[in-house]
Simulated assay, not measured.
Amino acid sequence: MSAGSEHLKDEGTKGQTILAGGIAGLISRFCIAPLDVVKIRLQLQIHSLSDPASHSTVVGPVYKGTLSTMRAIVRQEGITGLWKGNIPAEIMYVCYGALQFTAYRTTTQFLAELDPYRLPPAAESFLSGAVAGGMATATTYPLDLLRTRFAAQGPEQIYKSLRSSVVEIAQQEGPAGFFRGCSAAVAQIVPYMGLFFTAYEGFRPVMAELDHLPFGTGDAAAGVVASVLAKTGVFPLDLVRKRLQVQGPTRTRYVHRNIPESNGVARTIMMILRTQGVRGLYRGLTVSLLKAAPASAVTMWTYERVLRILQETEVAAAY
């Protein structure tokens, strides 16, 4: 073992990493689906909450806060409304989780072999996380767009099924339609995943030493802290991504009928600043943090547990 490899943990085999990452993404997504729907609805809402007079011109619901938005969705669309877009999201999270952890593992192991020019641990974590996030996001982006469009649907059904949505977008918007806002997504996810894994790898050993955290929840606690820090830093790009994802011929048919026409990341940011101020770039941040914390906690806890089970099972089978 080289001197520089002492801080490299056992990431398991490639197959174990893919399976553990996929299971982690599947379970995490189902748990946080309602918060994700609420976040998307709030991000797409453009009218001022502090100016009741502006509500008279609104065509569609006026959401105020996480719990009230959740109650409004259940009342108007039924309990299943909180899981709109869950099918493409589940597929996305499984693929994303598998790709993310595989790319992270591969990049980490590659960087570990760069002795004597090896980067500091924090830099390795940042670079590995950025590469993993960028690759996973670009690959699964069409599913992310479909998730957003289904979650943005109100009582009116725009797309009847996942298959019909793919066919309609392909016919009406072409292949580029599946990648609306992708530049904002990659610009967001690269620093987000870099910051997340840097913070996670930094906090995980500290949390592991806290004896009062049961059942390996030190991994979950580290995931929560890392997620909150990273998500807050890049949130405006996440909001811009959602606004761009619902552009196209169906823009005026979603639950918020007055979503403005947007073209490009920079222009969308400038339009939001001009019409809604800086606060407009942080619509839905609270519920996003409420969602991101448990999502990251469940993801990292499940990933570490499943990976450990797979490793122990392989060792037991060898005997």
Rank of each mutant, 00 (worst) to 15 (best):
T137W: 09
L127M: 13
A112N: 09
A123P: 09
K39V: 08
A122T: 13
E156V: 05
V38G: 01
S125Y: 12
Q157W: 00
Q100D: 08
S68E: 15
H55K: 11
F150Y: 02
S54F: 07
T80H: 06
L143C: 11
L111K: 02
T80D: 11
T108Y: 07
T139D: 04
R71V: 11
I158Y: 02
V59N: 10
E113R: 11
L146K: 06
P155F: 07
L127A: 12
P52M: 11
M135D: 13
I40H: 06
R149V: 02
S68F: 15
T108G: 05
Q100A: 04
F126Y: 12
L119F: 10
T108A: 05
L67K: 10
T66D: 07
A132M: 09
A152R: 01
G60R: 03
L119W: 13
V62D: 02
R75G: 09
G134F: 05
M70N: 10
M70Y: 05
A98C: 00
I87W: 10
Q157G: 01
I79K: 05
D115P: 08
A72F: 08
N86L: 13
S48F: 07
R105C: 02
T69H: 09
S128Y: 04
T148Q: 13
Y117I: 02
A136K: 12
L82C: 00
D51I: 12
G133H: 04
W83R: 03
P142D: 04
Q153S: 15
G129M: 01
G81R: 00
Q45T: 10
L143W: 07
A53G: 15
I87A: 15
S54R: 15
R75I: 08
A136C: 01
A122E: 09
S128E: 00
L127H: 14
E124T: 08
C95E: 04
T137H: 04
T137P: 08
R41T: 00
A103I: 05
F101A: 04
I158Q: 06
G60F: 03
G60E: 02
V62N: 07
Q43D: 09
R71N: 11
L111Y: 01
T106E: 12
D115K: 14
E156R: 06
R149D: 03
T148S: 13
Y96P: 05
Q157H: 06
S50R: 12
T148L: 13
R149E: 04
Y117Q: 11
R149P: 01
